[in-house]
Amino acid sequence: MRNKILFVDPSPQWQQLVTATVGRQTLGIDPIVAVSGQDAAKVIASTDVCAVVCDKRLPDMEADQWFGHLRHLYPDIAVIMAAESIDPTDRRNAAALGVTRCFDKSQPLTVLVQMIREIAESETEGGSLQTIPLETFVQVIEMEQKTCTIRVINEAGGSKGVLFFQNGELIDARLGRLRGKPAAYSIFSWEKVLLCIQNSCAVKTNRINEYLQAFLMNAIARKDEAVNAAMEQRRVDAHAAAKPTDQDPGRLSLEALRARIRHVSPGAIEDIYIDSAWNPLIEQARRLGAFFAAGQLRACFLQDGKSLPLVLIPGTRTAVVSVQPDACRDVILNAVTD
């Protein structure tokens, strides 16, 4: 997956210049532009970026407000402050706000390109792993008491989450704007992942507050539940796909039939389904009714003495209700023909 970099600058000339230069010179990085702080906040909330290059002056936001916002919500994203001129005081202030680098716009653009390259490379400075399960790898981090940032890329869909470790302890996670345990549980639910290791961690506050082993047990249990739920959903979907859809202008829907029968005779229904195999019998019953000017066929009750009694409700496709042998047929027939 290609990295993206966000340029926040109100000047169209600067936007054109940097996007053209970065697009040409930094392989594997796609530039995105935003003209204001609000605009940039929207972009960054919906797109994974590896760095933000932001002008010191924005039309709608103070620099400290914007950088504070970034540091608070996206601590793993590197921030480069760009300005027409930068003095040592600006650098100190910027560092205090969590800005990673400063770029003086009077410098050649190659300097900025180099900064971006270094930031992009630092995301994988500790290496990339594709074959090791995430649960196993985080236990290695715990054993080695590593301080690092792990970027986890879900191979199914390409979404990116971040795990923050201080001295081997998982202290925080980020997935989009989600932070802490909810983000971590989501990241640990992914099946196949690519891990990128950065040998530093910008986050200091612990939002997980749980021993890694205990957290992993919970995460694995949740993952199993999610897998089981997904399998169950697939089974239900397959079952539904195998059955014809229950849209028949000639009769009530299966759910309506079920509700009616349940209302008058709870527990009577064994199964309810569509089965067009009964259509020939229904046709015979219609002919029989025609002999006696009986009117429109509303329902049939069949009992062979071996299997469960059946109530058939005619339509384009026949609805079949198998009922318990002791169910009161008159009550059920009245319910479905009223």
């Binding site: 029989l288 009714g289 006696f292 009986a294 066929l297 509303r298 049939c300 009992q303 062979d304």
Partner: peptide, 24 residues
């Protein structure tokens, strides 16, 4: 055409048909 009817309902001990005006 009771022959066809007999054939169709062969195998059932009982059957009941509810129509708009009658019941068989």
């Amino acid at each position: 055409h009771w022959s066809a009817m007999s054939h169709t309902f062969n195998g059932f001990k009982e059957a009941e048909f509810v129509y708009e005006n009658h019941r068989i």
